[in-house]
């Protein structure tokens, strides 16, 4: 098959048969495969966190904990939710430039910002929960080990999350390099 055959195949390919009703459905967010899943995950996460905020003071003896631990917990929880709302809104808009290369550059930079914000607020939220529960404990050796275990788990979770973001950013970066190679 030479390039003329490829061109001819290309011209004959791609006669779609989706009607206007099917296309209309695709413009709705509720029918969108990826955004719908992200939205459901985000809504469940937000509801659980709001429920936690509503019950933690009575349920986990907020009154007996230091004021700083309560403030840190509420502040980090709000930051966690707000950042996820912002990230969700940003991810819905991957197209950001008049040409492919500019769009990729801007999206890559946005992804880096989002990754940093997500990782920072996850770390902050996890640390706030650990601090809250550890703030009024009389520590024994066993409890120190349990605390160390929780800290290691938190660091591990944040690390795994950072790998996922890194992979996404790398994917955009490698395409940008492919485009750049053509201009050298």
């Amino acid at each position: 098959m030479d390039i003329d055959n490829i061109k001819s195949n290309w011209k004959n390919a791609g006669v779609g048969i989706k009607d206007q009703n099917e296309l209309l459905m695709m413009t709705k967010i509720k029918n969108h495969p990826n955004i719908k899943k992200l939205r459901i995950k985000f809504i469940i996460e937000t509801i659980l966190i709001i429920v936690f905020l509503a019950v933690y003071y009575d349920g986990f003896d907020g009154a007996t904990k230091p004021l700083w631990a309560n403030i840190l917990l509420i502040g980090s929880t709000l930051a966690y939710i707000i950042v996820r709302i912002l990230v969700w809104l940003e991810l819905r808009n991957p197209i950001r430039g008049e040409n492919l290369k500019n769009s990729l550059i801007r999206f890559q930079s946005k992804l880096k910002q989002m990754a940093n914000m997500i990782l920072f607020t996850s770390l902050l939220f996890g640390s706030a929960i650990i601090s809250f529960f550890a703030s009024s404990i009389d520590f024994t050796v066993g409890k120190y080990f349990a605390l160390a275990g929780m800290i290691v788990t938190l660091i591990l979770l944040v690390y795994l999350s950072s790998r996922i973001w890194e992979k996404r950013i790398e994917s955009i970066k490698s395409t940008l390099i492919e485009f750049n190679d053509t201009s050298q």
Partner: peptide, 10 residues
């Protein structure tokens, strides 16, 4: 396909 139609509409 669905993602592209959604982005086109936006």
């Amino acid at each position: 396909f669905q993602e592209i139609v959604f982005q086109l509409w936006k």
